[in-house]
Nucleic acid binder design. Structure first.
Lengths: 142, 142
DNA sequence: AGAAACCCTGTAGTCGCTACAGAGTCAAGC
DNA sequence: GCTTGACTCTGTAGCGACTACAGGGTTTCT
């Protein structure tokens, strides 16, 4: 299988496949006589694994560690739990701040219904008031 | 006011202040005889404005546009609404995918309660099954 | 006087790709 | 046989928003 086919069947960009190889996530494939990369089933599975982890927003460094576990079936899996737990903590934290962010933005958006001169724009007024150290509606309630 | 004081009173890193200057967000300050940057109240307010916008996760390019509006008080503010609306759309979309992500991760985490051999780890099993194109619990229900 | 804390410029690193530039290879159509 | 187009190769640079030096100069405190 050439790189284009591998990329196609995993929904990954060709450049990204080469990037994963360079980053050490994908093992070096064998080469055809012309120098083209030649992939097998194991590469396909490994790439699918990587994409699945990426869909869970795991950093590549963590995926590397997971792949090491996959390659050593006899090792203890305790660190895998830790790794997933850390990821959950990260996501939860981001989620919390995103929720606050959404609220702040909608409050801010309400400051200006109809377009008018910038001078009277409630949104800008809000943003500028922060610059004066005043309380602003969008960041008022923590 | 020197750069350290400015950074301190806005909660911004000194390097970040210089970065904002280089990016054209902060106007060039005057310099002391020794070459040190010298800031005034306007810089302080502008920097606070920038940080407030960044707290709303706006890209620097959008903040630049907002600052242009601030500098032209007579202009129409219609584009400001558009800008904020776009930001809200971005945040809502990210929020949605983050929520799905959290769910997927907690499902995944449940696959492995107690540490044991990697071979039997439910988490790895889930992740690997995706590599075989099978349905996985964490990405099962869309 | 000497050390710590500040300031300067400029460059490189982070993360996970993405987008070239410039070249070689291959299959199909005319 | 020759061109066109699609594929592949390597290597490097760019994104966004910083962060972290390296290698110097200046100020401030003791």
């Amino acid at each position: 299988m050439r790189i284009g086919e591998l990329a196609e069947s995993t929904g990954v960009d060709v450049e990204t496949v080469r990037f994963y190889e360079k980053s050490g996530l994908l093992p070096l494939p064998s080469r055809e006589a012309n120098g083209y990369r030649s992939y097998g089933k194991t590469h396909l599975e490994r790439l699918a694994f990587i994409r699945h982890c990426r869909a869970l927003d795991m950093p590549l460094a963590d995926i590397t560690r997971l792949l090491n576990f996959v390659d050593q079936p006899a090792s203890d899996c305790g660190d895998i739990n830790v790794l997933v737990d850390e990821q959950i903590v990260r996501v939860k934290a981001r989620l919390k701040s995103m929720r606050a962010l959404e609220k702040q933005l909608t409050v801010l958006r309400r400051q200006c219904g109809e377009p008018h001169s910038t001078q009277e724009c409630g949104i800008l007024h809000e943003l500028v008031s922060a610059a004066h150290g005043e309380a602003c509606a969008c960041h008022a309630g923590h």
